[in-house]
Amino acid sequence: MLVFPNAKINIGLNIVEKRADGYHNIESCFYPVGWSDALEITLADEFSFRSDGIVIPGNSSDNLCTKAYQMIAADYALPAVKMHLLKSIPIGAGLGGGSADAAFVIKALNEQFDLKISFEKQLDYARRLGSDCAFFISNKPAYCFQKGDEFEDIDLNLKGKCIVLVNPGLHISTVEAYSGIVPKRSEHDLHNVLKEPIENWKFKVKNDFEATLFPIYPLLGEIKEALYQQGALYAAMSGSGSTLFGIFELEKDLQKHFADYKVWQGPLD
């Protein structure tokens, strides 16, 4: 079976409060985008995982894809499989690529071996692997809260608009990103603001990490401003960085403009 785990962006990211378990409660809108990895799962004599493309740090036994397989295999009589991941989505880039890979393993194993795992149980498995993972089970626009693993439907349709994602190759750890954050509630209700024309978002839809990370990494702010100069209706950093995105009314080719960085551009669904 061949699947294509896709990335997501955060449209707005409010860090609301720190939890007793050390995590943070957030408010955000997760929106799927077309930048994808490729994952092939085939029957084998023994389990194996390998990856090509962008180098994934650490051992294969620690990869979320491996952990997803082991978690399902502990509850179901799975045969051995060989997993081959072609990694294209940048790592530590605020795009949820690793989480998507793991969630797609859950969905692919369920389909390939007709396990009949309920949607809710798939969500439960995904939540065990990471806060972002559960989003990719439904993989549709959602208002996210708590640790980013609880969801409500949101009436947001950007179909027909185009997105440009720019990744300058900076790796920002979660610890570093949160170190300067003072949790607080936003003065604007994200649900309501996202119902307004997209041109209004620039003034009301914020990513809290930008205020602390842009002074440390001025390049991030420069890329965001360049996206606006190129005509973006809305631009922001995704997650805790370091990818910036711009949403445009019409198709935009900015590969040459951001020639020194990784760029993905395409339509939104």
Rank of each mutant, 00 (worst) to 15 (best):
F4R: 15
N6K: 14
A7I: 07
G12W: 05
I15Q: 06
A20V: 12
H24I: 06
N25V: 03
N25E: 14
N25P: 03
S28P: 02
Y31D: 09
W35H: 07
E40C: 11
A44M: 05
A44T: 04
I54T: 09
G58K: 13
G58E: 12
T66R: 04
Y69K: 03
I72Y: 01
Y76I: 00
L78H: 01
L78N: 00
V81I: 15
K82M: 06
I89W: 05
P90F: 05
G92T: 06
G96I: 05
G97T: 09
F104I: 05
K107P: 02
K107H: 02
Q112I: 02
L115G: 01
F119L: 13
F119Y: 12
D124W: 06
A126C: 07
I137A: 04
S138M: 05
P141V: 04
A142T: 06
E150T: 14
D153S: 14
K161H: 14
L170I: 15
E176H: 08
D189M: 10
N192Q: 15
V193M: 14
K206D: 09
N207S: 07
L213T: 06
I216P: 01
L219C: 03
L220H: 09
Q230V: 02
Q230R: 11
A235E: 08
G241L: 06
T243E: 04
E251H: 13
L254M: 07
Q255E: 11
Q255W: 00
K256C: 04
H257N: 11
F258L: 07
F258D: 06
D260Y: 00
V263L: 04
G266S: 11
